[in-house]
């Protein structure tokens, strides 16, 4: 669960501005959530409370929507977003072993982010590159035919020099 966050005053002001635009309008919930996540990168508890307050809906309704859609996150995301494909082709060609190795190397589970704020690990559906399965992407870079053993080397490129 998210801990209390310290958002900067300007960020709160911008948030309030977005929420005020849709004051009392429950239909705007998803749109507001999108814009707030764009602004902060994720949707901490405090922000969801503020949205519930402004739109006049219960906190349950807000959290229900946030937890329904995988593109909303209640946790801060890392600088690099690693997506492991779990589409059929990738799955049968070993993407779960790749995922396991990633979890081991990063010390987190799918859906989580590393404490240093560097990586977020997630599982996605078919990326449309089945010919290269198993496939992972890290931000805009695509890696095909990935073997679990290749993971440490791939990650190295994203870590600051000198960090194992």
């Amino acid at each position: 669960m998210t801990k209390s966050v310290e958002l900067q005053k300007e960020v709160w002001q911008e948030l309030d501005r977005i929420i005020q635009e849709h004051r009392g309008d429950r239909a705007a919930l998803i749109q507001v959530l999108h814009r707030c996540q764009e602004l902060i990168g994720y949707l901490p508890k405090e922000v969801q409370v503020q949205i519930a307050h402004g739109l006049g809906v219960s906190l349950g309704e807000v959290y229900g929507v946030v937890s329904f859609y995988s593109f909303f996150s209640t946790k801060p995301r890392g600088k690099y977003r690693i997506s492991v494909c779990k589409g059929t082709a990738c799955y049968v060609r070993g993407s779960m072993e790749v995922l396991e190795r990633l979890e081991k190397e990063l010390g987190i589970k799918a859906g989580d982010s590393t404490d240093d704020g560097l990586f977020t690990l997630e599982v996605v559906r078919c990326l449309g590159a089945c010919g290269l399965s198993p496939v992972i992407t890290i931000n805009d870079n695509t890696y095909g035919l990935v073997r679990p053993d290749a993971i440490p080397r791939i990650l190295m490129a994203y870590r600051p020099a000198g960090v194992a």
Binding site: V57, S58, G60, E61, Y63, G64, S67, F68
Partner: peptide, 10 residues
């Protein structure tokens, strides 16, 4: 009109 419990996740 309380809305204390809702569907979560999917």
């Amino acid at each position: 009109g309380v809305g204390a419990i809702v569907p979560l996740e999917r």
